[in-house]
């Protein structure tokens, strides 16, 4: 018990002597293993360093999937984007068209008819010749259509839903299935429609 050094024992040198034993290899391996564990941990629970990801959630994508989404609103968003890339060039972003050149879509009875059968035909193959829109006479040469532009059924449905539900238009959405059905009915038609032909298409 009394072998313990006394408090005031003289200290011979300023600093204690040091040995130079090597760092044990297992300690270095352990460090590497714990370091690896740390990296794995950050990878698994770190949420990809995203400021929006908090602990019970693992990634931004997971959170994004959890959001309650309005499918129709999303479709309209997509439709608006695609419309502005294609149809909007002539019919204008506001859907009012250009006087004497491109007829308006806003308020047009061709657009807002409850059954979109005629509208789908116009968009697929275009329309030519004399036609009445919003009580005004037009003589049309519609140069572009969905088939030549290569717009998919999904996107076309989105575009048509958009033009039927924006600018004060209120008409039911168009589904890709309806477009596919029209394509089946019209077969490999490539020529534009005339107003008379369209009026012959039955509406439900």
């Amino acid at each position: 018990m009394n072998a313990e050094p006394q408090a005031s024992a003289p200290l011979a040198e300023a600093a204690p002597k040091v040995g130079f034993a090597a760092v044990p290899i297992w300690l270095i391996i352990l460090t590497a293993l714990l370091g690896y564990r740390g990296c794995m941990y950050v990878d698994q629970f770190g949420g990809g360093f995203d400021p929006k990801v908090y602990t019970p959630y693992a990634s931004f994508k997971q959170l994004d999937d959890l959001q309650t989404k309005d499918a129709n609103a999303e479709m309209i968003q997509r439709g608006k984007r695609r419309y502005n890339e294609t149809c909007g060039q002539c019919h204008q972003a506001g859907g009012l068209g250009t006087p004497w050149q491109f007829p308006p879509l806003a308020g047009s009875e061709w657009v807002t008819a409850p059954d979109p059968a005629r509208l789908i035909r116009i968009s697929l193959h275009a329309v030519q010749g004399p036609i009445t829109v919003n009580g005004q006479q037009w003589d049309l040469i519609m140069s572009l259509n969905a088939i030549t532009l290569g717009i998919s059924d999904d996107d076309l449905a989105a575009i048509l839903t958009y033009i039927r539900q924006d600018w004060g238009n209120k008409a039911p959405a168009v589904t890709p299935a309806q477009i596919a059905a029209v394509k089946k009915e019209t077969g490999d038609r490539a020529t534009p429609w005339t107003a008379e032909e369209l009026k012959a298409v039955p509406l439900k």
Binding site: T31, Y41, V42, G46, G47, P51, K52
Partner: peptide
Amino acid sequence: ASAPVPAWIVSVSNAAAVMLFI
């Protein structure tokens, strides 16, 4: 571990806390 901060801060800190064992 339960801090209301982005998950990466918590997990980086956690990895370091384990390393302090060394």
